[in-house]
Amino acid sequence: MKKLCCALLLSLPLSAFAYPTEVETSLNGTEVSYETQDIGDSMGAVLLQNYGKQDVNCTAVFQNGPETPKVRKTLVPAGKTSNLTVSFGRAIIKLRVKLTCNPA
């Protein structure tokens, strides 16, 4: 039994490797903060927090190497959060995100 437990523990990864994420922002005077998240090998996300007093329209363009860029849009109400997620067909090596936010 002890050997089985040891074998299971050794088969688990010792550390999780995250891919690098580059974010280019154009917030246009809005009070929005962002946090990138890696969900898995082929998925990524950006969590948006609106600290302002008015709603904000945000657009994120996610790009992973040679794949076609994927566009996600959201309206972030004042004082609320919104999550933009994307899934690619290949494992992400480096994720590039262009985030543009404008007052609604």
Rank of each mutant, 00 (worst) to 15 (best):
K70N: 06
V32C: 08
T81L: 11
V32D: 00
N64L: 06
L9E: 07
L12H: 03
A7C: 15
R72W: 03
G52S: 02
S33K: 08
N28I: 01
D41T: 13
N57Y: 05
S15P: 06
V76N: 03
A45C: 11
E24P: 06
N28P: 03
S26P: 14
Q63Y: 05
P20D: 01
T30H: 00
V32F: 06
P77R: 01
M1C: 11
L9I: 13
K70E: 06
N83G: 01
L84S: 02
S87N: 13
T85C: 08
V61M: 08
L95D: 06
D41A: 09
I93Y: 15
T68K: 15
T36S: 07
V46N: 04
F88H: 09
R90G: 01
I92D: 05
R96D: 12
G29T: 07
T21M: 14
L47V: 09
A104T: 09
K73C: 10
A16R: 13
L84K: 01
G79L: 00
A60C: 06
R72H: 06
L99Q: 00
D41G: 13
T74H: 04
Q54C: 06
G40Y: 12
L48K: 01
T100K: 12
E31K: 04
E31Y: 04
G52A: 04
T68G: 11
T100R: 08
N28Q: 10
G89I: 08
C6L: 14
P20W: 00
L99Y: 04
R72G: 05
Y19T: 10
P103T: 08
D41C: 07
A16T: 12
